[in-house]
Write a protein that binds this DNA or RNA. Structure first.
Lengths: 132, 132
DNA sequence: CGGGATCCTTATCGATACTG
DNA sequence: CAGTATCGATAAGGATCCCG
C-alpha cells in the first residue's frame, strides 16, 4: 500500500489548495456505482440490509456491505442492530447524510436538464467516429 | 430532497426511473480520478495536450488521452487541431462544459463546508474499529 | 438475516515502445 | 507534439460458502 500524504495532484507535484484535496478525496469515496443510489434509497426512510438490497437492485451483497461501511465511515449512514438472532440491522441516513442529499440533488437536476444535450453529443461523437 | 416516483434500479434491471438512469450513467462517466481535475484545469482557458498534462500533474498520457476523449464525447470539451506537423492540438471547455462546472462547484462547496464533520466521522469510525 | 472469508474473473491503470 | 498499441501488475467486483 504505502499511500503517501495526499496532495491535490494525487500522486505528483504538491501545491494547490487543501480544498482541492478534500474534493478529490470525497469524489474518490463516493464515486462508485452504488453510494449515491444507496443514499437515494435511504432518502425515504430506514431500511434493513436485504430490503435495501432489493430496493437498490443489481447490487451484490458484498458491494452493498462495503458501500454501507463507507457511508457509515463518512458519517452519512447510521447502522443500528436491534436484535441478535436472527440479526436485525437497520440503516438510516444521519443528518449529515440527509444534508448531503442537497448537492447531490443539484447535480442530479443538472444532469436531468442537460441529459438530452449530452446524449446528443455522444450520438454525434459516435457518428463522427464511424463515418471517419 | 425532491424525489421522482418509482423505484430506482440500475441499467438492465426492471423499473428504472429515467432520471435515475441518467444520473447513474453520468456518475459512471465522470467519476474517475481525472475528469473533474481536467475540467478544473481547463477552467482558466484552453490548453494544449502536454501543457494540460503538466497542469493536472500525476496523470499518465494514456489516462489523460482517454479522459479527454470521454469529455469530448460528452460535449464538455472541444478538441481543435490547428496544425499538422508537429501536431498542435488545443483543448477547451464548451459552453456545456463550463456550465457543468456549476453543480460541480455546488458539490465542492458542500464538501468544503462539511469536510471537518466528515473527517471527524472517519476518525471516530477508525477509533471504534481499533478499540472494538 | 446479516455479512465475513475465499476464490476467481474482469476491468483499470502505468510503463514502455512506436508513429505521423 | 500528440497521440495509439501492447503488455503486465493490481485492484475492483461477482459468486459461493459458511457461521453467528
Amino acid at each position: 500500500m504505502g499511500e503517501q500524504e495526499g496532495t491535490c495532484r494525487v500522486r505528483g507535484h504538491p501545491h494547490e489548495t487543501a480544498a482541492c484535496e478534500h474534493i478529490s478525496r470525497m469524489l474518490e469515496r463516493i464515486s462508485d456505482k452504488w453510494t449515491l443510489l444507496v443514499v437515494r434509497a435511504l432518502g425515504n426512510g430506514p431500511l434493513r440490509f436485504n430490503a435495501l438490497k432489493r430496493e437498490v437492485g443489481g447490487v451484490s451483497q458484498k458491494m452493498l456491505a462495503s458501500t454501507l461501511r463507507g457511508l457509515e465511515e463518512n458519517g452519512f449512514v447510521l447502522r443500528t442492530v436491534t436484535q441478535d438472532m436472527p440479526p436485525m440491522v437497520e440503516y438510516a441516513l444521519t443528518d449529515l447524510g440527509r444534508d448531503f442529499g442537497n448537492p447531490v440533488q443539484t447535480f442530479a437536476d443538472w444532469v436531468i436538464r442537460n441529459s438530452e444535450r449530452i446524449e446528443a453529443s455522444r450520438a454525434a461523437y459516435a457518428e463522427r467516429r464511424s463515418v471517419r
